[in-house]
Design a protein around this nucleic acid. Structure first.
Length: 542
RNA sequence: CGGAGCGUAGCGCAGCCUGGUAGCGCAUCUGCUUUGGGAGCAGAGGGUCGUGUGUUCGAAUCACACCGCUCCGACCA
């Protein structure tokens, strides 16, 4: 099965979901219709993405422009992400805190680059009271704040303020803090999960006595993100360092993990920043060293957000909707009883209940298996397709014959179809409970990763050494799948880097990162012809 | 915020050019039939056609403004 996205016009124009839907559409079908759970396929990737978010019941837009409502199934995925990542953050010695969402304007102003980077996307609170004036409810001019508050776009400054008070001596270091919070960045072009005005994230902030220790922390957390993305989200990534022009405002170095979406675009899925003493100097985060002198701390910050959910959708989704890796599926196994208003319904239900109870006692990925018996009063067939669209890893259907024969019939969401046909697999109840269930969940987790990993590996092209090669690789229609290029460069900076960036921009390309794994020797710089010092990934990006 | 396109029932769309006061499929509800699984038949509910102003005897349809969405550009986790 090809994992590459379908190209425009490659398949029938629309893969209608239900037979009757086909009649409603003004399309002439020359080929046998492929019935899918979505009414759109990945050839129109942006529309497909929105359809998955909607049909999988993940989220919807809200009355506030750019802000989204995360629905139970989408939030359930976030809760799984939080739970497992929180465990890993704590396992590396960090503690959770909570800081205010309001930051005094003067705090933000302290670090010059930091202000510049965020000034354009700030929400500002200026009043603390409303008043009816001329029949209109509006901010009371007499209740103006002496100092405006910005709604945090990130918390370096307010946490730095606390750090300055908390840290006195080298014995207070390292200070390792994390917080789960919402942040606001006034985005011009919102997209559900990928870029919203308000989003949920986790932000780690640490302070260290030495540069070496802070750099190590920065890399350690990048590695936590890499392994989390790959092991838990089944989303292969390339970890590496961002070029100078893509750094976090105020950082010395920024590292990222980059994931490849099914349209070939790169998604920055997590970042880790070494901040040097920039914020420490701006905010006086100092400590007395063991020789009695005063030193500035070296600080770091790192974060991942609800954007990860968008990454999961665009990594694993198919033409039937979402496919969730079992490790983050709010429900890993969903049992759909096939009821038909007949006496044997009672037996079917009892059989389902005992099955769900037995499955719920199993463990996988170090936790109890999450099972749901779907008793919603809608047609059984409708239930099945709802769970297909939502991406439940295993969907079990139980009819009277299963109940009587001690069997179960299941579908794997990752390999739902054989050609166009849905694959329903029958197996003995005991066998399923005792071996299959756990084994299948592990297998699905693994197979989703392998599929995505194969796509990533197959679509990072090396060996292009000149600009003409870049142009030809990224030529053609924008609808077409384009992967990434891995090229050698001389790592220019300042104005020279800007030139490179401008050139890349003509092809809508950006430098993603310089992968951590580098070869021993380098081809000459693709841009300047000078000796190469590093390999970087260039790609179109979200 | 600039360029383009689009906003008609929960979803997907037709109607708009050539104004006469709203239609299709899916979904929803009811009844009957059906039942190893995305069922059939009959009937029903649901829309002040994004918002406002204007033109007109009459506006989903024409004009203007605003709002929102999508794509492209600038910005970004």
């Amino acid at each position: 099965m090809s994992v590459r996205p379908l190209r425009a016009g490659q398949l029938c124009p629309v893969q209608a979901a239900r037979p009757a839907l086909r009649r409603a559409r003004n399309f002439a079908f020359s080929e046998p219709l492929m019935q899918r759970a979505l009414d759109i396929n990945r050839s129109r990737f942006a529309d497909w993405y929105q359809a998955v978010v909607r049909d999988a019941d993940m989220a919807e837009t809200s009355p506030v422009r750019g802000a989204m409502v995360i629905k139970p199934w989408g939030y359930g995925v976030w809760e799984q992400i939080q739970q497992e990542l929180d465990r890993r953050i704590k396992a590396t010695g960090h503690e959770n805190c909570y800081f205010p969402m309001f930051i005094p304007l003067s705090f933000i102003a302290k670090e010059a680059e930091h202000v510049e980077g965020f000034a354009k996307e700030m929400a500002i609170v200026t009043h603390h009271r409303l008043k009816m004036i001329d029949g209109k409810l509006q901010p009371d001019p007499e209740a103006k704040l002496e100092e405006p508050l910005v709604v945090r776009p990130t918390s370096e400054t307010i946490i730095g303020d606390a750090f300055a008070r908390w840290i006195k001596s080298h014995r207070d270091l390292p200070l390792l803090i994390n917080q789960w919070a919402n942040v606001v960045r006034w985005e011009m072009r919102p997209r559900l999960f990928l870029r919203t005005t308000e989003f949920l994230w986790q932000e780690g902030h640490t302070a260290h006595a030495t540069e070496a220790e802070a750099v190590e922390e920065t890399r350690k957390m990048l590695e936590v993100y890499r392994s989390f993305a790959e092991d838990v989200l089944a989303m292969p990534v390339v970890a590496g360092e961002k070029p100078e022009n893509e750094r976090f405002p105020g950082a010395v170095n920024t590292y990222s993990i980059e994931a490849m979406m099914q349209d070939g675009k790169a998604l920055q899925a997590g970042t880790s920043h070494f901040l040097g003493t920039h914020f420490a100097e701006a905010q006086s985060i100092k400590f007395q060293n063991d020789a009695g002198g005063m030193d500035f701390c070296n600080t770091t910050s790192w974060g991942v957000s609800t954007r990860l959910i968008g990454g999961v959708i665009m990594t694993h989704g198919d033409d039937d909707g979402l496919r969730l890796p079992p490790a983050i599926a709010p429900r890993q196994i969903v049992v759909v009883p096939m009821l038909r208003d007949k006496p044997e319904d009672t037996e079917v239900l009892a059989y389902c209940e005992s099955l769900v109870e037995a499955l719920g006692k199993l463990s996988v990925f170090g936790q109890r298996v999450r099972v749901l018996l779907d008793l919603k009063k809608i047609k059984s067939a409708e239930k099945r397709w709802n769970w297909v669209r939502r991406g439940a890893p295993i969907i079990i259907e139980i009819g009277p014959r299963d109940a009587a024969g001690g069997n179960i019939t299941y579908m794997r969401r990752d390999t739902l179809r054989d050609g166009d046909k849905v694959r329903s697999i029958a197996v003995g109840r005991q066998e399923f409970i005792e071996e299959k269930a756990v084994q299948l969940l592990a297998e699905i987790q693994h197979s989703l990763y392998s599929e995505a990993k194969a796509r990533l590996d197959a679509n990072i092209k090396s060996g292009v050494t000149d600009w003409a090669g870049v142009e030809s690789y990224f030529s053609g229609s924008d609808e077409e799948f384009k992967g990434w290029l891995r090229i050698s460069w001389s790592k220019p900076s300042g104005a020279d880097l800007e030139k490179v960036d401008a050139r890349l921009k003509t092809l809508k390309l950006t430098i993603r990162n310089a992968p951590s794994q580098q070869p021993d020797t380098f081809a000459p710089c693709l841009f300047t012809g000078k000796p190469g010092v590093e390999e970087i990934l260039i790609a179109r990006a979200y």
